[in-house]
Structure formats: C-alpha cells, structure tokens
C-alpha cells in the first residue's frame, strides 16, 4: 500500500499517523506539504489531526482552500481511499467531500479521553478487519467534534448506511450520556457515498500498540492494507 500524509501549518498528529502506518505496514508514507499541487501516485491519502492554520476562522476552513485539496478531491472522486482524522475530518466536511459540519463540543471544552465506538459496518476499505457491531476503544482529543447535519442530510446518510462509527457504552449501546461532544445520533465518523472517503473524530492512530494502552485502532490500518494491497 502506498500512502501519503498531507500536512498543513499546524498539523500535529501527522507524526502519530505516520508512526501508525509504519508500525502496521512497515512502510513510511510520503509526506505532502499543503502548498504542493500534485500528489504522488498513492492508494491512500491521509489528512491528519491538528490545528491547521490555528483553527482560525473555523476548524478546517482554511486548509480546505489550500491548493493540495483540489488534488485530494480529484483523487477521491477517482476512487482513491481518503482518511480524514479529527482536523482531517473537519477539512473533508469543509471541502464538501463529506456531509455535515463539526461544531464546538456541547460543553465548550476540549476533551481528551478514551471512548468506545460501535463499528457500523465491516464491508468498507477501512473496516474489513472489524466485525459489524463490534465495540472498539480509541481516544478522542478535540474541541470541535460535535457532528451536525440538517434533517434531510441526516436521513440520507442514515438510510444509505454512511455512518461509520457511533459513540457508545462499553457494551455497545448508543446513549447520549456517554457522547463526548453532543454529536447528532452519536455519529463519530461518516463515509462518502462511494465509501472510499472516511472522516472520523477519534484517533485510531493513537491505539495501534498495546503500550499505548490498547490496540483497537490497528485493524483500521490493517483493513486498508488488505484492501489496497
């Protein structure tokens, strides 16, 4: 699998996902600077977490207008797998590759802790190594992770099975009390229509090695390698 990680001024979980890709695939991904206008020939494009452009204006809004995003969009439309994590998810919604918006957490505080996610389906390039309905534990670390969309869009993504993950209890119940940010329907991640683009707020890249406390994020990268090999 050939992967590229796109970095913006203010990206800071680029290191985490690069380390995770190396740990799982044994290969170092290419690193593409936000001002570049061309992407190498890759199977996976990652938009990492962080505070691109300091989150000024609106999280992800300025990065969505950087030159490289035109190329990312073109590749996404051509079917290349695109993974946007945290700030990367915010950028994907800002650029219109994914529906909805990410608002400030409902308690208006940054939140960093492990949460549980219910894997909605296991037939995508990102989730083949999980079981549908499986509960995994990964951390969140964000201030603006409160997913929202208008009722029509929400109905559409729900009916099209485009919700990737939902915040849940350790037993797999989607309940409002354990929702860390107020996301509608407990949504933690969504796919595009073709399911080759995934955006999610939690950080599977920080749970790939037992020394990190858990390795539930690892199968996501293994799924990608298996699917894209």
């Amino acid at each position: 699998m050939r992967a590229a990680v796109v970095t913006f001024p203010g990206s800071n979980r680029d290191v985490d996902v690069i380390d995770a890709l190396i740990a799982v695939s044994g290969q170092r991904p290419g690193i593409v600077w936000h001002r570049d206008v061309e992407l190498p020939d890759v199977d996976l494009i990652v938009l990492p977490g962080g505070f691109s452009y300091g989150d000024y204006l609106r999280s992800g809004a300025m990065a969505a207008r950087s030159p490289i995003l035109r190329e990312v969009s073109a590749r996404a439309e051509a079917g290349v797998a695109v993974l946007g994590i945290c700030n990367g998810f915010q950028i994907l919604t800002e650029v219109g590759l994914l529906p909805g918006v990410l608002m400030a957490n409902r308690n208006l505080k940054f939140v960093c802790r492990d949460i549980h996610l219910k894997v909605e389906r296991a037939d995508t390039p990102f989730t083949g190594r999980y079981e549908a309905g499986q509960v995994i534990r990964v951390p969140v670390a964000h201030h603006d992770g409160n997913y929202f969309s208008d009722a029509d869009t929400l109905a559409r993504i729900e009916s099209e099975g485009r919700v990737a993950f939902r915040y849940c209890t350790p037993e797999g119940h989607v309940e409002d009390e354990i929702n860390p940010n107020g996301s509608i329907n407990g949504i933690a991640g969504v796919y595009n229509e073709a399911r080759n683009v995934l955006g999610l707020m939690p950080h599977p890249e920080d749970h790939v090695d037992g020394a990190q406390g858990c390795s539930d994020g690892r199968p996501m990268f293994e799924s990608l390698i298996e699917h894209l090999a």
């Binding site: 979980r13 290191v15 985490d16 977490g49 960093c112």
Partner: peptide, 15 residues
C-alpha cells in the same frame, strides 16, 4: 487532564 491533550504524538504510555 480531560481538557489537556495528553496523547498527541502517540507515545504516552502512562497517562
């Protein structure tokens, strides 16, 4: 500490 990102860089082994 819930308000501090104590995991970024991916190397925190004791929180």
């Amino acid at each position: 500490w819930d308000q501090y990102d104590h995991l970024v860089m991916g190397r925190t082994v004791q929180r």
